[in-house]
Design a protein around this nucleic acid. Structure first.
Lengths: 219, 219
DNA sequence: CTAATAGTGTCTCTGAGACACTATCTA
DNA sequence: TAGATAGTGTCTCAGAGACACTATTAG
């Protein structure tokens, strides 16, 4: 009926926060093209799976990252974007808490690393463009939804929550105004637990009220 | 290197406003599958074009609609969404001014029509789901960007602008508050022209200050 | 008792929303 | 001059943002 041969791939931008910086997961490619260069995790889609399933599967296979939040970002389709032939790539944003994963989890894979978005190396394919777009989307989305929860562990302090906002938006926020706002919109609720193992007054731990993504004007 | 056979298509949701209702462009299919049923305009992507180019080309071929605003919505990839085989569809939102096109422009095509989104017939494939998502996106986007301009002719009255917001958001807005807001955000500027051919006090005509899409909190 | 972070309240100013009348044009 | 829509100002209240001190805990 129609003769068409376009390859379909997925690429994931896995965001996390560590040591006050916003980071993404990169892989050093062990195959051509762009062999030994850094790229986003991503691979071909199987005929038997949806794009999102492909992104999940690939992340698990390539980096052992599982059970994280995934959302479709954009489908990139420049004709010459892949030297292997005509290929489009559907990009997914993933958010994860750094605590969710021990560093050894991906130690058997050739080379993967989290990289500060302000210190990115040269990337393969059109991945630089994809990353830039992903950062832009994340910045907007964290302001009007409750996605911040996917970057945090289940229980967290208000300071940690504020750190997520400050790091993603790359700006400082007044502590009192931030807490007033968070309080009013019923984003989180206090648990009876407190931080442990710190050498100063421990902070209360909170959890998100709504586990599903919803539209909330946070800032 | 990899054996993969996934068909890639584009579908467009062409929005316009007429007689106080938000409408989308539908086509009565003249080929199987879903022959004689209503569907969104859309077709297979060529190997030599980007997804957006495919959407433009298909709209021109199927409906003679040209030179309109297009933006990528989402890529739908349910495994069984197309009875012809594994196919993913990248959906595009299009916005157009009804004045841009004379009704005869698509009279030679088998059957196309603008349909009130509140009176949609049953649609082929997963097009109902796609349309629902498109409406949701349009409602949000019109509030925080200047995309409304693409639904209007180059010169328009403030009343027409307000009609766009009221129709898309499906709610009434106070005239005075609306104008105060529009005034403050420098969204539009007055021209020296006035409405003609009306049987009452003619309104001033305005144009948008910024032709490119930009983030502006309108409402 | 010291060091370190947690946690809280007030004031000002801007903007959102409710609300009704006058101005201007055509026929 | 009548009919119809264009066009405009004020008040109230809520929320954003600036700003500094006290509370609690570990060691």
């Amino acid at each position: 009926m129609i003769k068409q041969s376009i390859l379909v791939t997925v690429d994931s931008i896995v965001f996390t926060i560590s040591k006050g910086s916003l980071q993404i997961l990169l892989i050093k490619r062990s195959v051509a093209p762009f062999k030994w260069e850094w790229s986003l995790p991503g691979w071909f889609v199987l005929e038997s799976e949806t794009l999102q399933e492909a992104a999940y599967r690939d992340l698990a296979e390539e980096t052992n990252v599982k059970n994280i939040y995934l959302e479709q970002l954009y489908t990139f389709s420049e004709v010459k974007r892949d030297p292997r032939g005509r290929a489009i790539s559907c990009a997914y944003i993933a958010l994860m808490s750094r605590e969710n994963m021990s560093p050894k989890a991906w130690s058997d894979v050739s080379e993967t690393t989290f990289c500060d978005i302000k210190k990115l190396p040269k990337l393969a394919f059109d991945h630089k463009k994809i990353v830039d777009y992903a950062i832009q989307r994340l910045k907007r989305k964290i302001e009007y939804t409750n996605v911040a929860q996917y970057i945090l562990p289940k229980k967290f302090t208000l300071r940690q929550l504020q750190d997520v906002y400050e790091t993603v938006l790359d700006q400082t926020i007044d502590v009192r105004n931030f807490r007033k706002k968070i309080d009013k919109i019923w984003l989180v609720k206090a648990t009876w637990d407190k931080e442990i193992g710190v050498q100063y007054r421990p902070a209360k731990l909170y959890t998100f009220v709504n586990k599903n993504i919803e539209i909330v004007e946070v800032l």
